[in-house]
Design a protein around this nucleic acid. Sequence first.
DNA 1: TATAATATTGACCGAATCGGTTAACTGTGT
DNA 2: ACACAGTTAACCGATTCGGTCAATATTATA
Lengths: 207, 207
Amino acid sequence: MSILEKFLSLSEEKKTIIIDAALSSFGTNGYKKTSVSDIATAAGISKAMIFHYFGTKKTLYIYLIDLCGNILMNGFNENFDTSVTDFFERIRLATDIKISVMKKHPSIFSFLNSMYLESDDEVKADIKDILAKGEGFRSKIAFDGMDGSKFKDDIDPKLVMKMLVLLAEGYVSQSSSKVGFDLELLHKEFNEYIDLLKRNFYKEEYL
Amino acid sequence: MSILEKFLSLSEEKKTIIIDAALSSFGTNGYKKTSVSDIATAAGISKAMIFHYFGTKKTLYIYLIDLCGNILMNGFNENFDTSVTDFFERIRLATDIKISVMKKHPSIFSFLNSMYLESDDEVKADIKDILAKGEGFRSKIAFDGMDGSKFKDDIDPKLVMKMLVLLAEGYVSQSSSKVGFDLELLHKEFNEYIDLLKRNFYKEEYL
DNA sequence: TATAATATTGACCGAATCGGTTAACTGTGT
DNA sequence: ACACAGTTAACCGATTCGGTCAATATTATA
């Protein structure tokens, strides 16, 4: 059995624990400043097990990069509906997907964020590859075929969009640090914001 | 000349460079994961100089904690005007102060954020002290004597407040990581958001 | 229950890095 | 020529690094 297969043959629960420990550690401290011991401790196993499952620290990191890419791609490809043109409903849909991804791996976006600004030479090149692959992915989903005509005339949809992106970013930065954050509550709150904005930014005939 | 005096007698420019290097390093990686070499490199000086100026790593960290506390307190005490009761204008005022602080030390909020979740025993106690001192500071400024009556009846000012706090947090998390971010632009954008919300959330007679 | 196979770890390796020190080197004014 | 403050490269012992491995638990098979 090859090294990675040993990991893959673990129970889903155990795999998730290890992956989340690694995502959260790397996401918080970056590649270089994260030690394999950190991850092992966070996962509640011994350092030797990590090397048993992945061989090297770098292999683990690359594995996580690919995994995140796949999880996101699959989430959006399977659940995103481009026939929804309403601005807010599309954002709501994208957020639903994002949150359901976070439900499985709460630290995934903190990890992805840290990837963008990773400077260590050992993994820099590999990151560039995967980043190029997902380029324009988010923005395409956001704006392609989206209907901004329902807004009141003096409101710039792009400004609203930027606001919601920042809002989501604020949530991530808040939730990735705090320990006992409630994803369900977060989801509910975000939907309240969307309702609030929709109610006040759309022309009355569209409400 | 005592150790700290040596640092204080430096030119304002040099002091700022060193402080910002330390704030940014500690803010990014926390106390334990930040080495004195990291800070020295970021500041463009040798590691020995840091020890020459501050004696120990912990002394430097504590110095930064106090400094941040003082900078924020002074900023708000000198510039905050509690006679401004309008919800958005007060938020605008608080944001003006925050940004002017960030103009001098861009990484200050990233450092303060990281302080909240610092777990290292060597500095944990000292953090608790300063944190207790500033408790309720932000929330008092935010809500005391603030007028929420101008909002449309179906809008909860607290929800808007939370939204703007998250928005600001999103900005911090975005700006503290990116290298070439433009504070002036950030400021302008934030004001646009406030205008946008005010225009659409207030009853018409208050516009 | 005895044994073979597997899962897991504590202890260990050389190398790197840690916080901190110091002797020597710079430049500048006299 | 000298003194002197500012600065650093080289160094210190201690710790931690990524990674290995022999030994111990655990489980499966008989």
